[in-house]
Amino acid sequence: MEINRPDGRTPNQLRPLACSRSVLHRAHGSASWAQGETKVLAAVYGPKAGTKKNENPEKASIEVIWKPKTGQIGKAERESEMILKKTLESICIRTIYPNTTTSIIVQVVHDDGALLPCAINAACAALVDAGIPLKHLAVAVCCSVTDSGGIILDPTKHEEENMKAFAYLVFPNAIVTVLPERSLQVSGESIAHGIITSVTQGAMSVDDYLHCLDRGRAASARLSEFLRKNIEPKPTSEASKAG
């Protein structure tokens, strides 16, 4: 079925992506990620000594601070912080530096739909920029279900509000991985098919959700290619950063 999108994209087409590394000089790692108009800036500081009281000191812990564009920090920000924290905890190798805290600060520059996936991509790029050891990359997409049952990728804010339901999905992505060869295939599916995180909103049928997963996986391959290209180390002779 033909779905007309206001900006003329096909249902499977993502918005133009833009990513830059090392945008902040004093942070240990930073990245900015833009999908169309949605732009997020992420900065990583760490690992720093010590863990918070409630955290397990035998593992490295991750702390996320979400800064909205305007307004006070409320429940929505706390929820985004928790989702980001749990997602990033699952991609970091936490046993290498126990009893440390890595802080990730996410600043929303502009919100035009698919904000949480954009933030996750930015945070992942910033972690790579900082050199934190990761098991694999995390790639996030937003899929939404229209009233007629079609699936659209990467909606803008205007499209999101008119959709029946949408889902933010985060997939793992690895070309070379520290995990042993056997575990790359789990019950007939390769490791890239599992989802790390899924947040949905709105009512959809279970089949719609499984279709979203399929489309999301296909899109994650494109996103991860873009991510890898952009975070390759630059061949410059910069002095090493302080701290």
Partner: peptide, 29 residues
């Protein structure tokens, strides 16, 4: 650490599939 919360309604629609991260990946099965 890996929690999954599924919200269904009585007409069988999936209202929410909430999996906030976690070290275990969720496959289709």
């Amino acid at each position: 650490e890996t929690h999954v919360t599924i919200v269904l309604d009585t007409s069988g629609q999936l209202i929410s599939f909430y999996k906030p991260g976690g070290s275990v990946l969720a496959y289709t099965a």
